[in-house]
Design a protein around this nucleic acid. Structure first.
Lengths: 151, 151
DNA sequence: ACCTCTCTGACCATCTTTGACTATTGTTTG
DNA sequence: CAAACAATAGTCAAAGATGGTCAGAGAGGT
C-alpha cells in the first residue's frame, strides 16, 4: 500500500463507506496527492470498474467533475423487511418521502418511480382525516415494499 | 454544481416546479447572478431545448422578455385529459389495470412503473369498503395522471 | 533479464464564460 | 409619419476550465 494509486483508491473508498457516491474534481485530488491529473484516471480505470461494482460519470469544462457510485446489488429483502417493520401501520408524509429517498439511494427505485409514488402518498391524494391518512399511507407503503421484493 | 450555468438552470427549473411558465428579463437575471447577458442565452440553449421538453419565446426591445414553458406533448396531454375525464370519481380494479396498460402502450409509463402503481390500486392495498375503494382508486389514478403530465 | 503494474506528460475533447457586434422592438422628436 | 434614439435580446468566435487518451518511462517482483 505504498503507491499513490492504492492511497487514492483507499481515500475514495473510505468516503464511499459513508456516502452513496463521491464527486471529485480531478485537478483538486491530483494536487492533494501530489500527482499528475491523469493519475486519477488510472486509479479509476483500474480500481473503480463496473466489474468491481462501481459506476463512474464525468463532465469536462467549467464545473467539471468525476462522480463515482457504488453499485449495490445487495440481496435487498432484508432491507425491505427492516423498512417494513419501521413503517408499521402509520406514516407521515415526510417519513414516506424519507423512505422513498432511501429506496432510491439503494437503487431499488428510480427517481421517476419515486416521484410517481410520492405524488400518490401526498395528503392531497389521500382525501380523508389525518388519522386515516397516516394509516392509509402506511398501508400503501407496505404494499410497495412487498411489491418491490417481487419485481 | 458550482458553475453559473447550473445555478441559473436550477433557479429557473425551481420556478417551473410551481409555475407552468417562467418569464424573465435577460439583463435582470444576468445581474442577479453576476454574469454577462449572453450567459443566459447559453443556459437556455443548452438546458432548455425542445429535446429536453421546453418551449422558449422571447421579444427584444423595450419590455422585452424571455419566456420558458414546459412542453407537454399535445397527444399525451389530450390523452391524459381524456383519461382523466373517463376515470371520473370511481374506478374498479380491472378498469385501473386497463388504464395502466394503455399508459404503458403510450409509453407514458414503463412496465415496472405500471406494476408498482397497479399493486397500490389493488383492493388488498385499499383497506376500506368497496364504495370507498372505488372512490379512492379513482382519486389516486387522477393524481397519477396529473403527475405524469408534469414529469 | 522479463513481465506487469504504475506514473508521467504532451496532446486532445468537451463544456463554460465572456464580450464585441448585430438584430429587433418601443419611444421620442422634428 | 419618418428619423433618431433607447432598450432589449441574439450570435458567434475566442478564451478559459476541466476531464480523457495514450505511449513511453519507471519500479518491483520472479
Amino acid at each position: 500500500m505504498q503507491n499513490i494509486t492504492d492511497i487514492i483508491e483507499a481515500y475514495l473508498k473510505q468516503i464511499l463507506n459513508d456516502e452513496t457516491k463521491v464527486e471529485i474534481k480531478r485537478q483538486e485530488i491530483a494536487q492533494r496527492f501530489d500527482c499528475v491529473p491523469s493519475q486519477i484516471n488510472y486509479v479509476i480505470n483500474t480500481r473503480f470498474t463496473v466489474e468491481k461494482g462501481y459506476f463512474v460519470e464525468s463532465k469536462r469544462g467549467g464545473g467539471g467533475y468525476i462522480r463515482i457510485q457504488k453499485i449495490v446489488l445487495l440481496d435487498s429483502h432484508d432491507l425491505l423487511d427492516e423498512m417494513s417493520a419501521w413503517v408499521g401501520d402509520q406514516l407521515t408524509e415526510q417519513a414516506a418521502e424519507d423512505y422513498l429517498i432511501r429506496l432510491m439511494n439503494e437503487q431499488l427505485l428510480t427517481r421517476r418511480e419515486a416521484i410517481l409514488i410520492q405524488s400518490l402518498l401526498r395528503k392531497e391524494s389521500l382525501p380523508m382525516d389525518v388519522e386515516d391518512q397516516h394509516r392509509m399511507r402506511a398501508h400503501l407503503m407496505q404494499t410497495l415494499l412487498q411489491t418491490i421484493k417481487r419485481l
